[in-house]
Design a protein around this nucleic acid. Structure first.
Lengths: 234, 234
DNA sequence: ATGCGTGTGTTCTATATTCGAACACATTGT
DNA sequence: ACAATGTGTTCGAATATAGAACACACGCAT
């Protein structure tokens, strides 16, 4: 059944799993605890940790406990670097004009990952879409906007017929909205952002209440999406 | 001389170097090019890349070329997670009250890394300190603020006597300023942010010109620093 | 103090894992 | 048609790694 033909590197895979474990854990961990969670011998974890430390990806606090290092953030700055660079000014403009948190999301397998976000002056809440947050792409306006760019055949398994109809319907008008889907009582409006040769993306805003009509918001987002796409030759 | 007794993991180190190479390269690379830059056999790079791909840390564009994947951003969100969470609302307040970009930096070996930044409404420029940017800690106001928290013995090699005097002088008044140090014609004001058991950090603002006196700005920053430190039990 | 539990760092050998060459194939441009 | 470039796969040899075992430091209870 499971056509397991993946000749993966054991050592590298374990090293990455350490990073994943540390990102999940909200607190610094000991070597023993990390080895336990990876289900490897402690001396293995030790060598891997030493290597990660050499590269600055992890750091030890005063107690010797281990957490992700600041250089992880520096590495992540290279993700879709040009897209972020072009999108950020636009996100800022939209956030300030509409008074809403505005953010950029991209597709990552079956999840919707926020790459950058900008808060306006009177942010309703600190529920701000922090960069790096992710949730299933089948939920929320940005997710649906992204799905509208993806060939139906390669949709994730969580997509039912109802979702397909909803997405294809909204795709014709060019924008998407959601309510209570990712964060309770929060609304979102999103437009897809397709760039040549790059994965699907979307820009969106979230808000509690707004003087603007959703269609009006969508029009503003679409304008910025056009600017970004033009800048990247998409 | 160099007591090289670092039993590091070759495989993991090479895998990480791939990520570093991809972060540096502003464009997607081929497997051959990556293997060339790592100076390893292509089949080695291939297996490592396959593993990185399994974990979502890299992705291929339409041409099959390779770039950092969105999940890198998700991983990086775990860096100093609690610090970021506590600092972000404060950064936002400061940015909006002073009308300047406000950001959080931490120490990473001999570099100053920006973890989070917030732009105000009327941002003078999109020179916004993007999260992940880094520069030598010996330059700029945030760097000096961070250095003031570091025992002199463990200062980086780039620190001369002049810098030491400057930092110790400013440390007594509690805040730091710089001009033309990191970005030409830009000024910055920073205050140190020491948190129990965690690495040195600082919050700062950058601006071109300001109606506020530097001391006034510093006082506002210090207030937020106090709030953050209190929240984290530092 | 003594013992106990936990955590870190180091050394060592068998072997599983990785290395690197070679092959097959697709694509692109000359 | 041919070379040039890139990708994916196989395979034996060699080496980097896995995991056990040891030495040590620290905190905490008995």
């Amino acid at each position: 059944m499971t056509e397991e033909r993946a000749p993966a590197s054991q050592t590298l895979s374990r090293g990455i799993r350490i990073l994943e474990v540390l990102a999940d854990a909200r607190e610094p961990l000991t070597i023993d605890e990390i080895a336990r969670r990876l289900d490897v011998h402690r001396s293995v974890a030790y060598r891997l940790l030493r290597t990660l430390e050499d590269h600055g990806l992890i750091a030890r606090d005063a107690n010797g406990h281990i957490a992700l290092g600041a250089r992880m953030a520096a590495l992540a700055a290279g993700v879709a670097h040009d897209l972020q660079a072009e999108a950020l000014p636009e996100l800022t403009d939209v956030a300030n004009e509409l008074g809403m948190t505005c953010f950029l999301s991209v597709l990552d397998h079956d999840e919707c990952v926020t790459l950058a976000s900008v808060e306006p002056r009177h942010a309703v809440a600190s529920v701000a879409q922090r960069p790096g947050t992710r949730h299933p792409v089948t939920r929320g306006a940005p997710g649906k906007a992204i799905l509208s760019l993806v060939p139906g055949a390669s949709w994730p398994s969580g997509a039912d017929a109802h979702l397909r109809d909803e997405v294809t319907d909204a795709a014709t008008r060019g924008w998407f909205e959601s309510h209570d889907e990712v964060i309770p009582s929060l609304r979102a409006v999103a437009v897809p952002l397709a760039i040549r040769g790059r994965g699907a993306a979307a820009i969106a805003v979230v808000y509690l209440a707004s003087p603007h009509a959703p269609a009006e918001i969508a029009a503003r987002l679409a304008r910025s999406a056009g600017v970004i796409r033009a800048a990247l030759g998409g």
